[in-house]
Design a protein around this nucleic acid. Structure first.
Lengths: 291, 291
DNA sequence: ACATTTATCTGACTTAGGTCAGGTAAATGA
DNA sequence: TCATTTACCTGACCTAAGTCAGATAAATGT
């Protein structure tokens, strides 16, 4: 017996619509109408092109224009014509605008902190919130190339190692494994891809090349909160496309049979099991795919 | 290494504010302004007293009055003076109003269903949504007395039995345990309390009396989605209050040491371990509390 | 060179939502 | 009984948000 899924979804909707306004009221906390606050915050987050902001916030061009004027009158922003195209305008925060934006950020952070402190064990709640956020925003996941030493990449890798340590019977120690040199996962030899959702890294994959026409897939990882969304498949497909761009002809990878879901993914994507091709202590299964 | 909790909360807020409008647009789907739709739905859900609706939706009395007039003009509701107090008014759906309300319900159900069907394995997502909803609405949890044969009570009991079956090494079979007769958990002998959150049962406890001044606490259960909110403690406190009302002087309970968190709860609430007082095969630890 | 397209702005207008100061009629308390 | 309180209604007014039809000026295609 289980409670009706539709009721559960609707209950979530009710809870969220009833409470989320209270959860983050930072946009209303500084005596400015919501519209103006949203524009100010979009600019503060780095959006500069007026058309881009309008598009992002879904505003009519007339309304947008008026909101920009009101922020200008407050002395919070300045707009200048785009040097490449004088019809377009670029909006930037002034000094006062920047400190006003930071006040909004501080408000929002404080509210998030207060929310967390109302919960005695926030870790499980946070995990649940991650799952919901990933699922709701699944269509906004973007894959980006990153240097493997970039903080986003390093976050993914450390989570990946931690997971291997949990799942392998004998644990996992990076230093025992052939950790690919960062150089070999940067163009022109290879690439390192990170899946980003709302500025948070939630998955990665590395293509490790040696300059020849054979390359290896390494470090495929998807955050627990984002599993079941087909992200691993998407990362693998993107890595394959990158491999073709780099004129790779043969892809290889090694894996461990403890990672059952991975093996299934490879087989379905047309990978074929081959003999061991390295003496790394952790993998016990080896695959190849000709492009 | 773990991602900053504040960023995670803010990411959830962004995801939810961006998507939840799209998640349930049923209130906007029938060409009526949001305010009127909300009032119609409040009445459809059984709210009748005008003041109660106004309070529930947080509306100004002038606005409320106008919304009621517009719904009346549409022929969806009828208002009559309260027979006990002719100043107050009672709002009820007309025939057309009822079918309009049901159209909203159908829309909302269809959207929830569509949302579920977009997810390949919705069970984990639903679990996460339950956790978030329970936590956000924790202050709205109410404890209500229910007949143990009421569907809400039976839902809780079947979940409780299923959990015992999972957690006990040898499983759990209700028929082997001394299942208290429903009569003994109804006043004046005892009570059965269910914790309700937004119409969904999320916990229960039974007070089983025999007519004398000794009674037993049975069937204490909290839904996994609602743990960590202090609900078990609250249920126990409510059961104690009910026991005092029924002139019970000694409370007893049995538990199994596999349920570690329960034992701690009892000790902290002033219960004292005593000798075995029944020959039920499942419990191995026994407690008593004098009121 | 010139018609067309594009990005933004301006003015006129609409709707939803909400506030506030009375007004009416019923209920209540001294 | 009668002043006071209470529940709801009405009219006047306000703001935020959004729509729409041009206007303006820069860029673009032929």
């Amino acid at each position: 017996m289980s409670y009706d899924p539709i009721s559960r979804v609707r209950r979530f909707n009710r809870a969220v619509t009833a409470e989320v306004g209270a959860l983050d009221t930072s946009f209303l906390g500084r005596g400015r109408p919501l519209g103006a606050a949203r524009v100010l915050n979009a600019i503060g987050q780095g959006q500069a092109d007026v058309a881009a902001i309008r598009d992002y916030l879904g505003l009519d061009s007339g309304l947008m224009s008026r909101l920009l004027r009101s922020l200008e009158e407050e002395g919070l922003i300045a707009t200048i014509p785009n040097p490449q195209d004088a019809r377009r305008r670029i909006a930037k925060l002034t000094e006062t605008g920047r400190s006003e934006f930071e006040a909004y950020e501080a408000l929002s952070n404080a509210q998030a902190k207060a929310f967390l402190s109302r919960n005695s064990q926030p870790e499980e709640l946070l995990r649940a919130m991650d799952i919901v956020a990933s699922s709701l925003r699944r269509d906004h996941i973007v894959l980006e190339e990153r240097d493997p030493r970039h903080p986003d990449a390093r976050y993914c890798l450390s989570e990946y190692y931690a997971e291997l340590a949990r799942r392998f019977e004998k644990g996992f120690d990076v230093s025992l494994s052939r950790d690919p040199d960062a150089r070999e996962m940067i163009r022109p030899r290879g690439v390192f891809l990170v899946a980003i959702l709302d500025a948070m890294p939630i998955g990665c994959v590395g293509l490790k090349g040696s300059g020849g026409d054979v390359a290896e897939i390494k470090r495929l990882w998807v955050a627990p909160s984002s599993r079941g969304l087909g992200l691993a498949k998407r990362l693998m497909a993107a890595a394959e496309i990158a491999a073709r761009e780099l004129s790779i002809e043969v892809l290889r990878l090694d894996t461990n049979s403890a990672l059952t879901e991975a093996e299934q993914l490879y087989r379905r994507a047309g990978w074929i099991e081959i003999d061991r091709f390295n003496d790394d202590p952790y993998p016990d299964t080896f695959f190849e795919k000709r492009l």
